[in-house]
């Protein structure tokens, strides 16, 4: 079924409209098995809209999405079964205990996990003590850990993370990077969105820079830096003589602050 065995995700000519507004325009990229791929772009660039189309939350205007060999338009349930997802703003029923939230999603993904197995999962993310607290009573960082562990509970081949580090303190952010790398270690591919260049440079194998709904560059962070090192634009925005991914990003997407 899959003509390219190396791709876990192939996006081709994807366009997403909200009414007449084109949020995503003719976007193409692919994610390889076992890689961490970053979708970088300023606010409103179209990152969440792109992911929403992959997740099946909205119907694209045009283009094709193939996840693990399944066309997301034709076989949405199969495509989604291979996906683990953390939405930009996910929540779970605040009345449910943390173990119950995990049990719900284990069931939804067709897993039969015992209470003890669920508790073991919570132990791994140091939330065993919170197991019988209501989800709504957890701190933001703890809720975030729950939502990340649910994104990988069914051992998905591709994990989609929408701005996973936004709102985290530096410690939690570092810990999350380690968790994301651990996800890859287990053989999953990760597609994440971020506007943290530091994050993209240090955890992503490859990145796509997206702006105004269009992909303007796809490569490894280092290759992007090398390729644009001598651009006058890049040099003019760089500080202290060292060219960083952020300089390339600013040069490519402009200095205007987005709402």
């Amino acid at each position: 079924m899959n003509d390219n065995q190396e791709n876990i995700l192939t996006v081709n000519g994807l366009s997403v409209n909200y009414g007449k507004f084109q949020a995503v325009q003719n976007v193409s990229f692919n994610v390889l098995k076992g890689e961490i791929f970053g979708l970088l772009g300023p606010n409103g660039a179209g990152k969440t809209s792109t992911l929403s189309a992959l997740e099946g939350l909205l119907k694209p205007q045009s283009g094709s999405i193939v996840i693990d060999g399944y066309d997301a338009g034709e076989k949405p349930l199969y495509a989604r079964a291979s996906l683990g997802v953390q939405l930009q703003s996910t929540s779970f029923q605040p009345e449910l205990f943390v173990v119950e939230v995990l049990e719900l999603y284990a069931g939804i993904y067709g897993l039969t996990l015992t209470r003890n197995e669920i508790l073991a999962i919570l132990r791994e993310i140091s939330l065993e003590d919170q197991a019988f607290k209501k989800f709504g009573q957890l701190s933001g960082g703890q809720q975030q850990r729950v939502s990340l562990v649910i994104a990988t509970i069914h051992n998905p081949k591709l994990v989609l993370l929408d701005e996973p580090t936004t709102g985290l303190d530096p410690q939690s952010r570092r810990q999350l990077w380690e968790r994301i790398e651990a996800i890859r270690e287990k053989g999953h591919a990760v597609l994440l969105t971020t506007h943290s260049m530091e994050e993209a440079e240090s955890v992503c194998d490859r990145i796509a820079i997206i702006d105004h709904g269009r992909v303007i560059a796809v490569d490894t962070p280092q290759a992007l830096i090398d390729k644009h090192r001598t651009d006058p634009e890049v040099i003019s925005v760089s500080r202290r003589g060292k060219i960083t991914l952020e300089d390339v990003f600013i040069a490519l997407t402009g200095k205007t602050v987005r709402a």
Partner: peptide
């Protein structure tokens, strides 16, 4: 492709319980 979709009855049971 070894992808398996969970049974609807399993899904419903999990949702009902929650």
């Amino acid at each position: 492709m070894d992808t398996v979709i969970p049974k609807t009855s399993t899904v419903l049971a999990a949702l009902l319980r929650a």
